[in-house]
Design a protein around this nucleic acid. Sequence first.
DNA 1: AACCCGGGGAT
DNA 2: ATCCCAGGGTT
Length: 302
Amino acid sequence: MTGIQRRLLAWYAKYGRANLPWRVVRDPYYTVVSEFMLQQTQVDRVVPIFGTFISRFPTFSALAKGPQSEVVRYWKGLGYNTRAVRLKALADAVVTKFGGEMPTEENLLLELPGVGPYTVAAIRAFAFNYDAAPMDTNVRRIVHRVHFGIEYPAKAASKELDMLARQLVPNGKAHDWSSAMMDLGALVCTARAPRCAACPLQTLCVAAPIDAARLERLREEFAKPATAKEPVPFELTARFARGRIVDRLRELPPGERISLLDLEREIVGIVAAEVGERFDELVAALEKEKIVARDGNEISLA
DNA sequence: AACCCGGGGAT
DNA sequence: ATCCCAGGGTT
C-alpha cells in the first residue's frame, strides 16, 4: 500500500459514513437500489427514501413481483423517474434470467437496464469487493487534484483518470477505497470549497492547499459558454410540469385512472401557460419512457 | 458531442 | 442566484 492509500483508509476508518444503510447491510440488492437512487442525487436525500423503499421491496424477488406503478410511487422525492422504471426492469431480468442472483461479469451487468460503466464498477466494488474503481464525480475530482492539480482546466483526460484510478485501488479493498473516496469528496475535497486543512492527503496532493477564490476564478474562466445561457426559473420549465404530472398520477388510488382532459385542466392551472400548451407533448414523452400509460382517453402510472 | 431527465441543498 | 449532485440513454 502506498502512503496515499494508507492515509485515505485510515481517514475513512475514523470519519467515514459507515452507518449509511447500504453499508450496514452487505447485500447486492442494497447496492443496486442505492446506486440507482444515488445517480445524480445526493446522499442526504436518498437515505430516508431508501429505508421505506427497502421495507416495501426487500429483495429482487419482491421488487420483481411488485407493480411498477407502486415502485414509481415509492420513488417520489428522488426525481429522474426513469431510474425507477429501469430498476424495476432490472429486478425482472435478475429474477427471470439469473434466478434471482445478481450477475458479476462486466458484460452481463452492462446489459442490464439503467446500468452504465459507472454502475458496473460500483456493483462489482461495493457488492462483491472486486478490484473495480467506480468513477463518479468525487473520485474523478480527487484523483485529478491529488495527481495532476486543480481540475480547471482539465489536465488529464477522463480515460487517463480511469486508468489511474484502477491502479490506485488496494488489492482486496475496493469497497473501502471507493467508499473512502466518495466520503472524502462529499465531506472534505468538495467541488466548490475544499477543506484542505482537514484532508488526510494534503501533504501529498498536487493541488493543495486550494484557494477557493482561485478555484472559482478558474472554473468560470474555463466553463463552457453554454453555461452562460439565460437562466429560467424552474417553475417555468417543462421539467417542472413533468414533475407535476407524475406527482398527480402518484396521488391516484392504485388501479384508478384519470381522464386526460381532467388531468390537463389541473396541470394547466398550475404551470406556466407556455408549458401548459405543450401538455400533449409532455404526456407523449412520459408514455415513451414507460412512466405513464394511456388507456383510451384515460391515463395512469404505467 | 449535445441534450434530456428533478429537485433540493450548499455556497 | 448559481452550482452541484454515487449517471444513463437517446439523438
